[in-house]
């Protein structure tokens, strides 16, 4: 399985097997990723996070690896998205490709590919401040897909 790379649409209709979307929150933006496994859903949620920042192409020129732990899968999604926000902020990068593997339900190894933020080319819209526990959900839907969602404070 190849890592998620710039796939998905803001509103996939009908939903494809793998994808992401944004959903409305009064002041901020919700991200929702889905796929055949929780790992894929996490990768797609990360793409939705990137799309809050930029609609433009992100070249996979550098990669960053992270490992995060949390007591349960939903909290692990918040950890994952917050780790990406931290790397974006401190490295001044954007990421367009993600790969997630789990070690059980409490440990996540993530790899992300991207490049230095170029204001003229990426036209960044808004800076994510943090992933929240609002509308937080990691679950398997009746049709067998996994979804991973929460609201991002921007």
């Amino acid at each position: 399985m190849s890592p998620a790379e710039n796939v998905g649409a803001e509103q996939a209709n009908p939903p494809s097997e793998t994808g992401w979307e944004h959903f409305a929150h009064d002041a901020d933006i919700g991200v929702r990723g889905w796929g055949p496994s929780p790992e894929k859903a996490f990768e797609q949620a990360a793409l939705a996070l990137t799309r809050i920042v930029t609609d433009q192409e992100v070249r996979p020129l550098e990669d960053v690896k992270i490992v995060r732990t949390a007591p349960e899968l939903e909290l692990l999604l918040v950890e994952w998205l917050n780790a990406i926000i931290f790397e974006m902020a401190t490295r001044s990068m954007v990421f367009g490709r993600f790969e997630v593997t789990f070690d059980g339900t409490q440990c996540l190894a993530g790899r992300m590919w991207g490049e230095k933020l170029d204001v003229a080319r990426h036209l960044p819209a808004v800076e994510p401040k943090g992933a929240t526990y609002t509308a937080l959900r990691v679950a398997r839907t009746p049709d067998g897909r996994w979804i991973a969602a929460c609201v991002i404070d921007v």
Binding site: V78, N82, K129, G130, Y133
Partner: peptide
């Protein structure tokens, strides 16, 4: 970024702290 990161980290820590203090929260946030 400093405030955002402090908010993020303590939110996480307080979820555990609330449980440890026996607080039943209707919303994790």
């Amino acid at each position: 970024g400093l405030g955002h990161q402090i908010g993020t980290e303590f939110l996480k820590e307080m979820v555990t702290a609330a449980q440890a203090a026996g607080l039943v929260l209707p919303d994790r946030e």
